[in-house]
């Protein structure tokens, strides 16, 4: 772990942030990493305070208004014509979205 921006050791160091960036598919240039990692360390240091809250027996709350069973009938809607579907694609051939050749096997 890198040196802390403050006296207490940070939970998140420069290498950790680089690793997280890769997981998040975010390219960070060296200077960006230098700038951002101490900011993140400080924010993580701040949110650490939640550890002090006694939450024994408290159910997690993932929704602001908790409801169940919102389902729709199996009925078709209007679909997008292909030209509209592809219109925002950075690259397409009129039929497919195009991405650089992906080689992920053998």
């Amino acid at each position: 772990m890198d040196a802390a921006p403050k006296s207490d050791a940070p939970k998140v160091g420069r290498d950790d942030v680089a690793k997280i960036a890769r997981l998040a598919r975010l390219r960070l240039e060296e200077d960006e990493l230098d700038r951002i990692w101490p900011q993140l360390a400080k924010i993580v240091g701040y949110v650490e305070q939640l550890a002090e809250v006694d939450t024994d027996g408290v159910e997690p709350m993932a929704h602001a208004v908790e409801r169940t069973n919102v389902l729709r009938d199996d009925v078709p809607v209007e679909m997008l014509p292909r030209d509209k579907a592809l219109a925002n694609a950075p690259k397409n051939d009129g039929k497919y979205f195009l991405v650089p050749q992906i080689i992920d096997a053998e």
Binding site: A21, R25, L26
Partner: peptide, 24 residues
């Protein structure tokens, strides 16, 4: 790297910070 470049260029600092924080 394809993804990293697209996203690294497309997002500004605050968005990057929050994505990193949430990924963590």
């Amino acid at each position: 790297t394809f993804y990293e470049r697209n996203r690294g260029e497309g997002f500004g600092d605050e968005v990057k910070r929050r994505i990193l924080l949430g990924t963590f």
